[in-house]
Amino acid sequence: MATTTSLTYKIGGELEINRMGYGGMQLTGPGVWGDAPDRELAKRVLLSAVESGVNFIDTADSYGPHTNEVLIREALSSQYSDIVVATKGGLERTGPNQWPVNGRPEHIRQAIDGSLQRLGKEVIQLWQLHRVDPNVPIEETLGPVADAVKAGKILHVGLSEAGIADIERAQQVVPIVSVQNLYNLAERSWEEVVDYTAERGIAFIPWFPLASGPGKLQDKIGALAEKYQATPAQVALAWLLRRSPNILLIPGTKSLQHLQENLAAVKVELSDEDVASLTA
């Protein structure tokens, strides 16, 4: 018998959001470079997401770069009192699909102030370190972040592509309330982090949640999609919702139709047996 899945989560124990959110990365040009080719459509997608119940929007200063945050401000600033906007910093952009890491404190300080300005916000509700810089101690990288928290510029802090050791080192500098790592049915190398964060009340935000995987897995997903009269993407998202109660989903799309399909995944309640068959 299927277990009813809680569809809300409190980030940092206080920001209650719907677990089905929206990621803005696809609302950019090819290679996540440049503005959305159709800005008006991109704004409609963002508005439609919020009107459909999404109250968690994920972005980053590197998407565009910078254009995604501006787009979100233009589309959603009138909704800011009802939604949580999370952004990230710690990468540079040198061209399409190029993402050099920069964890130097001066870059992080500029990234935070730049995001505040582009989003048109006085406080960033969730700021996430986009990558841990192997050339800069994480304590140094997070120094300006802790300062921004004390100054009231940032409410909560998260990490991205971080392991347990990174989380524990970061926690010595500033409380960590979320971890955003690559995770989906086909890519499960961060299983330990999913469980670690769940045990400690830290949100886990999978990026690239809709990757399919090897043929055998695709066959299973296809069969379950037929069984539940759902799309394969909805089955993949439904599995993530069942995987752990701290998982927050941010599937992105530039299509209004795909947006609604993704959001409908919350209605797919997989049985325990079907969850187990996908997890095995």
Score class of each variant (00 low, 15 high):
77 S>H: 09
150 K>N: 13
103 G>H: 06
198 A>G: 06
159 L>P: 00
237 L>S: 04
95 G>S: 10
29 G>T: 09
173 V>L: 09
212 S>Q: 08
245 P>G: 08
237 L>A: 01
27 L>K: 02
134 P>N: 13
88 K>H: 14
133 D>A: 11
31 G>Y: 09
261 E>L: 11
58 D>S: 03
180 Q>H: 06
50 V>H: 03
90 G>S: 08
70 V>L: 11
125 Q>H: 06
108 I>L: 06
179 V>S: 01
203 A>L: 05
64 G>A: 12
169 R>D: 02
270 L>W: 04
150 K>S: 12
32 V>D: 00
163 G>F: 12
230 A>T: 02
147 D>H: 08
100 P>E: 13
147 D>L: 09
102 N>T: 15
26 Q>N: 12
210 L>K: 04
182 L>V: 11
80 Y>F: 13
90 G>D: 01
15 L>R: 06
207 W>F: 15
62 S>G: 13
266 V>S: 07
50 V>S: 00
92 E>Y: 10
45 V>R: 00
25 M>I: 10
36 A>I: 01
261 E>K: 08
166 D>T: 13
13 G>T: 03
220 K>Y: 15
8 T>W: 13
63 Y>F: 14
163 G>Y: 11
110 Q>R: 15
140 E>D: 08
186 A>F: 08
190 W>I: 03
230 A>H: 05
174 V>Y: 07
206 P>Q: 10
186 A>S: 12
95 G>N: 11
113 D>W: 10
206 P>G: 05
227 K>C: 10
191 E>A: 07
